[in-house]
Design a protein around this nucleic acid. Sequence first.
DNA 1: TTATTATTGACGAATATTGACCTTAAGCTT
DNA 2: AAGCTTAAGGTCAATATTCGTCAATAATAA
Lengths: 159, 159
Amino acid sequence: MASLTGIIEKHIEELLERANEESVFLSRKDLAERFGCVPSQINYVIRSRFTPERGYIVESQRGGHGYIRVIRLCMDMPEARANHIEELVGDSVNEQDIRRILANLQRRKLITARERLLIEVAVRFQEEIGRDLLDLSPYKRDSLHAELLKRLLRSLVLG
Amino acid sequence: MASLTGIIEKHIEELLERANEESVFLSRKDLAERFGCVPSQINYVIRSRFTPERGYIVESQRGGHGYIRVIRLCMDMPEARANHIEELVGDSVNEQDIRRILANLQRRKLITARERLLIEVAVRFQEEIGRDLLDLSPYKRDSLHAELLKRLLRSLVLG
DNA sequence: TTATTATTGACGAATATTGACCTTAAGCTT
DNA sequence: AAGCTTAAGGTCAATATTCGTCAATAATAA
């Protein structure tokens, strides 16, 4: 993995580590100069590597004093939990399973009541759309549930 | 964040804090002198930072004894917050607007970073499904985003 | 070979700063 | 009371500085 993208990705991760902060402010122009690439390469790295699904939030501002800010959440979650989630959820879950899983996670204090609420609302909305608007089969809907649930939980649990 | 605008913004926020009042009266001329800038810079700070979207309203008066008054809205009633959400989101929002709204809500401590992350992931998933799997039009997708976002935020904010 | 991922560059959009010119209100002066 | 003066604040356009998007192309993986 000696791709430019990989190198820049590592660099940003290192900045996050080294600063021991929750976030870093980057200058797109400076980064591009430093790594001898076009500025839009930085956008590519951000878009492909520092996604919400991987536990990052990115803010940016154009114009004078512009910046790209990368925020990293959940810095210290054991990897074991990630695998656990895959197992737990599998490829298909119905809403009852989901509620059971969420109740469990909340009881173990891995998610808050509000986070659980968000996840339930998101899943229910998806169910509603899939059923009423798109006429998807029950199996298809449960597959989508599984995928959504995994993404949501991974974003919280992985760093 | 060493921009003039940022510095002035912080100063005004601090005045609000320190006064522990709901509002502060500013003198545009004095502020401009203090920070060594043209008076219209103050207008820019007000227009771009102390917006209703961020929970402020501003009154002003010209002429002798003129002033700029910055009022911080406190939205402690669930009712008020809910209405605010409706307005903010409307019937259609693109992902860029969503990110702005979420950043503002987090700044105002109405949601946490993790909650923001969950919402971003849910919206992105919906976008992905709508685009790649269901081939929905951009407008339809933005409508669905608005509906999803409103439901998610209402679930949090009504509590 | 085909599909995915990475790289590049042209063009566009947003933000910050400044200054010239406009509008409004209060207090005098007549 | 009307008009003038002075002291605010408002608007708008020009400019500079960043970042973002999109599509074409190249490289790599399946």
